[in-house]
Nucleic acid binder design. Structure first.
Length: 300
DNA sequence: GGCCAGGCTAGCA
DNA sequence: TGCTAGCATGGC
């Protein structure tokens, strides 16, 4: 089954694939030549592969979404909705660019990344686990740990004459011991944080889907009550997992470095300084954050 | 070898 | 309320 999605322009799918802002993960297959993104999607009762392919242009974009034929209408709706969310299909960036271009320091960054959006996580549990793993560690090692966690799950699905790794479910992770993650170079604390979070979800103490009906502040309060989840973690979860448009992880070392670079500051700005500067970015602080992170990569 | 990395907790004043 | 040591590992 193939259907078409029409994103709000500008939308640069090719650039999104080349530099996915969400951490690289072995559960995704990116084909740059075909401009396609494939991964397994965990529905309520089954796991299915979905492929999103880009077409059109940055200013007149179109995406095609492919998934198996033998699905119920309800499942198709869920796939459609989650895909739209993952690629921020409806988000119109025009006002973001207008807001940021008032500051000449941002002009060049915006111009270089025109049409760029983050690829969000498709699943809230997966998103939180990845953010917890990413705490404090350099991005590359964090990605390695995510890979090992996926390997530990040992779940794959047949796809394209090969196998597509599937990110483990909360039930799977909750069933593991801390020692299993320790054996994969997780620190004791990180192993506890990840597994305890999974157990909190499985126990029903936290219902992740309920978060969609809560404000950012309420979500912050609810999740930071859990051990191992602080403000930075929730902010990144709101960004990558929930796609909230106006969140700022001001304590983030990468954001601080990027702000220092972009604003030509003599030293790395502290959290309060970043929050103060970022007031001018509202209500687009999430996108400003994405672009700042992006500015740290390669030739930006 | 030493410092750093897309932090958090617990303990202390 | 605010500050800091300790955590633990790989990357550079």
């Amino acid at each position: 089954m193939v259907e078409y999605l029409v994103p709000a322009a500008p939308f640069d799918f090719q650039r999104m694939l080349q530099r996915p802002l969400s951490r690289p993960s072995k559960v995704t297959v990116i084909d740059l030549e075909a401009a396609s993104y494939t991964r397994a999607l965990r529905l309520k009762a089954k796991v299915v592969p979905i492929t999103v392919s880009g077409g059109g242009t940055v200013d007149v974009p179109v995406l095609s979404l492919s998934y198996p034929d033998d699905l119920s209408e309800q499942e198709r709706v869920e796939i459609r909705n989650r895909t739209r969310r993952m690629f921020s299909i409806e988000q119109d960036l025009t006002d973001f660019y207008a807001t940021m271009s008032q500051d000449p320091r941002w002009a060049s960054l915006i111009e270089r990344q025109y049409g760029l959006r983050p690829i969000q996580d498709i699943n809230l549990f997966e998103s939180m686990v990845k953010v917890i793993i990413g705490q404090q560690l350099n991005v590359q090692f964090a990605a390695t740990l995510v890979e090992r966690l996926v390997d530990l799950g040992e779940e794959t699905m047949n796809w394209n004459n090969g196998f597509l790794p599937v990110f483990p479910s909360a039930e799977q992770v909750a069933s593991w011991s801390y020692e299993q993650l320790r054996a994969q170079s997780f620190s004791q604390r990180k192993a506890e944080y990840v597994i305890d979070f999974a157990r909190t979800i499985v126990s029903g103490k936290i219902d992740l889907e309920r978060l969609w009906h809560m404000s950012d502040q309420q979500i912050l309060e609810e999740l930071t009550a859990l051990r191992g989840i602080g403000r930075w973690t929730v902010e990144c979860f709101l960004l990558f997992g929930m796609g909230k448009p106006d969140v700022l992880p001001a304590a983030d070392i990468g954001v601080q470095n990027a702000v220092q670079k972009l604003y030509g500051l003599s030293q790395r700005p502290k959290e309060d300084k970043v929050r103060q500067l970022a007031e001018a970015w509202a209500p687009w602080r999430s996108y400003a954050t994405y672009y700042l992170w992006q500015s740290l990569i390669g030739d930006n």
